[in-house]
Nucleic acid binder design. Structure first.
Ligand SMILES: [Zn+2]
Length: 500
DNA sequence: CGACTTTGACCCGCGC
DNA sequence: GCGCGGGTCAAAGTCG
């Protein structure tokens, strides 16, 4: 799996212009591929245009690479090999103009045909992937629910469970998950009784996309804090439910990205409901809630990093209980996956199975270091997706960075380089943004290495409470700063993934 | 006029 | 118990 991403990295390197500040981070714009094509082709000849189209197809294939494992469908990476194409073009140049034109036309039609085919395949794969991903999340959350309910008295965790979950996450074969996913209805039924708000929404959403009713079930435990649990008044209303929830199980997914914009565009509609001055940070923290559905529990906090105000830290909590526009599904998938994973890991603090595995992922590869760290000192389990270092590395011409210390590994971060190093305002920035989010999503959801390392990070740190630097204040949590000197640590982050 | 933002007040958990 | 900090509410203001 790492290979395609590496390839993409190389391609992005060509396109990236190192010096740009971002005016707005639009992670999830849909027309990013068009933008890629246009940006790549703007100074180019028709031949380049063709190449761009091929790249476009490759990107689609790579974006779908996660689904390959799940579905077993081979999209056919060699449909229109760029090498062969280039060779044809070279040959064509030596022929007569008419033949050349004919050849080019033939190639063009071929490419178009392939493009069409790939798009349809992409659609199919996306659907199946989202469905499977959804089911996976369901299963994980339901297991969690059951765990919490049953083991409330002597629980302290079943070590094998986290292991199982971790493997499930990495497991490409979905059949087992499909089977287990059947139980979802029962759980939903159970929970709907205790949660009026979302049960109604849940019923209305027969929606095979990323955020399904089941995700709502996940939100029950991944983010009761921001949802109802956080609201003091609502806590009283549903005290029984909150009583069954471990308070430390409110997963948050924090995304650190460089942006000058006050808020990243993640495809959702948000309404600001508060702003506070956070301690230790001159920049205020803004609170937003999702307004795409009336009772959507998803909230997010946006704050600039105190030490590097170009870094925007967006913390998501909860899962949408409504259909999402395609532009928003990426981040939703990312956050829900990360939250689910974090929770699954956090439940099995004794499970050190994955720790050695992470070591095996260490790789000398230059920019392929993914750092995962976790501190239990923060109030909520938080995964921080650190997307800032990539930009730095790119700006530093990809020179190898600081040695990655505890939990670095060879993941699939190669997509990231496109990330924060967008073109200037005049150029469409979306391709890179898209690649970033896709990278995050793919890293969390599909890449075994990343997943294993993430699991290792979670399990290792949570299994060793002594390692938590129970510091208070702005730099409280996480090993982050020591490892990622260029990306100042944000307060309160527990788990950090630095993808570069 | 509705949707959104601003902003002070309020609530709660936590540490001392 | 008190103060502090995080998080949320809701009235007032703003915008299109
Ligand atoms: Zn929502």
């Amino acid at each position: 799996m790492a290979r395609p991403h590496e390839m993409q990295l190389l391609r992005f390197e060509d396109r990236i212009e190192p010096t740009c500040t971002i005016t707005e981070v639009d992670f999830f714009s849909q027309d990013h591929r068009r933008a890629v094509a246009e940006a790549g082709a703007s100074p180019a000849s028709p031949k380049d245009h063709q190449r761009v189209e091929e790249e476009e197809k490759e990107e689609e294939e790579e974006e779908d690479s996660p689904a390959h494992g799940l579905t077993g469908i081979n999209i056919g990476l060699n449909l229109v090999p760029s090498n062969a194409q280039a060779g044809q073009s070279v040959i064509a140049e030596n022929e007569k103009p008419e033949n050349k034109i004919l050849t080019l036309q033939r190639e063009l039609s071929q490419v178009n045909e392939e493009n069409r085919r790939l798009r349809s395949m992409l659609d199919q794969l996306t659907k199946s992937y989202t469905a499977l991903h959804t089911q996976l999340l369901q299963v994980m959350q339901q297991r969690e629910v059951h765990e919490i309910r049953r083991g409330q008295d002597g629980k302290s965790g079943v070590p094998s469970r986290g292991e199982l979950l971790a493997h499930q996450f990495m497991e490409p074969a979905p059949t087992r998950l499909l089977n287990t996913g059947q139980r979802q209805d029962d759980d939903d039924g159970e929970h709907s009784s205790s949660r009026n708000k979302n049960s109604s929404d849940r019923g209305v959403v027969p929606f095979p996309q990323t955020h399904l009713p089941h995700v709502d079930a996940s939100s029950e435990h991944t983010s009761p804090s921001l949802e109802e649990g956080k609201s003091p008044r609502l806590v009283h209303e549903r005290s029984t439910d909150t009583a069954s929830e471990a308070p430390c199980r409110r997963a948050r997914v924090s995304v650190r990205a460089r942006s000058d914009a006050p808020m990243i565009n993640d495809g959702c509609q948000w309404r600001k409901y508060g702003q506070k001055m956070a301690k230790g940070n001159p920049c205020p923290r803004a609170y937003y809630r999702c307004t795409m559905a009336i009772a959507c529990p998803v909230r997010k906090q946006v704050q600039r990093c105190a030490e590097d105000k170009t870094i925007l830290v967006t913390t998501y909590e909860g899962n949408h209980n409504h259909p999402l526009p395609p532009a928003a599904t990426v981040m939703a998938n990312t956050t829900s996956s990360a939250a689910a994973m974090l929770l699954s890991g956090s439940t099995t603090s004794e499970d050190s199975l994955m720790a050695p595995a992470a070591g095996s992922f260490l790789h000398p590869s230059t920019y392929a270091s993914t750092m995962a760290a976790l501190s239990a000192s923060a109030p909520f389990p938080t995964i921080t997706l650190d997307l800032t270092q990539t930009a730095n590395q790119l700006q530093l011409l990809q020179r190898p960075q600081h040695p990655v210390v505890p939990l670095s590994m060879y993941g699939l971060p190669q997509k990231l380089p496109g990330l924060m190093v967008g073109p200037q305002a005049s150029l469409p920035f979306r391709p890179q943004q898209q690649s970033m989010v896709e990278t995050v999503t793919a890293a969390i959801t599909t890449d075994p290495n990343f997943t294993a390392a993430l699991a290792a990070a979670i399990t290792s740190v949570m299994g060793a409470p002594g390692t938590t630097n129970g510091a208070s204040g702005s730099n409280a949590a996480s090993i982050g700063p020591a490892i990622v000197p260029e990306s100042p640590q944000c307060p309160k982050s527990c788990t950090t993934f630095s993808i570069n």
